[in-house]
């Protein structure tokens, strides 16, 4: 933080790095769910006779999807509110990229040391989701409208879990600065809170990332492609890019809040990556083991799980603050 040149440099480096890691995480989600379903999934090493045509590896498959979408024609429907429809994906992307600048990476504190960075980061993540709802609503398609409505409902309950878990940690560690939380030590009580709040955050992440029991905004069996039905070409690619950044951002936020020293020094990098892999594995396991809820059941489930767990978290956090 003391060296402005280093901060500026790391701010420039983190964007491609986050893109790369986000692409790897989403590749892993696809590959692992394919393996769980007895499929091969995108290939690590292509068959040798197909290499000249199809490339050597598909590690960057999600990135290829996005690049391909950028090379396609973009259709804007006549009935849409043109300006909102076209600008929402870009605004969503900008907010997601700005959010990751406030989340530390091993060796790069970035902007996570500024006052209230925890609140800034969570607001930016919410703003990104907001624009991924507004754009589809402006598209004028009934499928997109249904998808967006489901997304709003899901967002309200999953956000509750998200906020309760991050603020329990903030109360226990008495700080709203991500860098301070990420630098904090560990004790037996804090470890207890980490488990309780980590579970809550994981549950909230399921809703935010549309992992399987909560993927009804994009339920392709019922509502075509949900919010993204009318999007094509560059605009759709921008939304996919946003998703990649948000996946990276949530994983990074999880590690820096709940597994404290891992996101601080470069020496922790291997453990950081290991933790990220475990987290992605957990998300994938939930994704493949569950069918889709109806929106009503999902909200009930969230309320039943998140409110007691959140209150428990707050009690633990207050106890740590007052007693320990």
């Amino acid at each position: 933080m003391l060296d402005p040149v280093y901060t500026v440099l790391s701010l420039i480096i983190i964007v491609p790095l986050a893109l790369f890691l986000g692409v790897i995480y989403s590749f892993l989600i696809r590959k692992l769910s394919a393996r769980f379903q007895w499929r091969v999934g995108p290939m690590f090493r292509m068959y040798s006779d197909l290499k000249p045509l199809l490339g050597t590896t598909r590690l960057l498959q999600p990135l290829y999807d996005i690049l391909k979408l950028y090379g396609k024609e973009t259709i804007v429907p006549d009935v849409s509110r043109r300006r909102l429809f076209v600008y929402s994906p870009y605004l969503s992307l900008i907010f997601a990229v700005t959010a990751i600048l406030f989340i530390p990476f091993p060796g790069m504190p970035l902007l996570s040391g500024v006052p209230y960075s925890l609140i800034i980061a969570s607001y930016l993540l919410i703003a990104s989701t907001l624009f991924s709802i507004l754009g589809p609503v402006a598209s004028g398609s009934p499928w997109a409208a249904i998808g967006a409505r489901r997304e709003v409902e899901l967002f309200l309950v999953s956000e509750l879990g998200f906020v309760l878990s991050i603020f329990a940690v903030a109360i226990a560690r008495q700080s709203l600065v991500i860098w301070d939380i990420a630098n904090g030590g560990q004790s037996i009580y804090l470890a207890l809170l980490t488990v309780a709040a980590g579970v809550l955050m994981l549950v909230a992440m399921l809703g935010k990332l549309h992992i399987k029991p909560f993927d009804m905004p994009e339920a392709e069996a019922e509502i075509v492609a949900g919010p993204y039905t009318e999007y094509s070409g560059k605009l759709l690619g921008t939304y996919y890019l946003t998703k990649v950044f948000i996946l990276y951002g949530l994983v990074a936020l999880f590690i820096s809040l709940f597994l404290p020293p891992l996101a601080t020094s470069v020496l922790w990098l291997p453990l950081y990556l290991l933790a990220a892999l475990v987290l992605v594995f957990l998300l994938t396991a939930v994704q493949v083991l569950n069918p889709r809820y109806r929106i009503k059941n999902a909200i009930n489930w969230y309320l039943k799980v998140v409110i007691p767990l959140g209150i428990l978290n707050l009690i633990i956090a207050l106890a740590i603050w007052l007693v320990v």
């Binding site: 696809r30 091969v40 999934g41 995108p42 290939m43 598909r58 999807d65 009318e230 999007y231």
Partner: peptide, 13 residues
């Protein structure tokens, strides 16, 4: 999906 082929739900994709 080995080769990146995916079934998409909307013709616009």
């Amino acid at each position: 999906e080995r080769f990146g082929i995916q079934l998409v739900p909307s013709p616009r994709h």
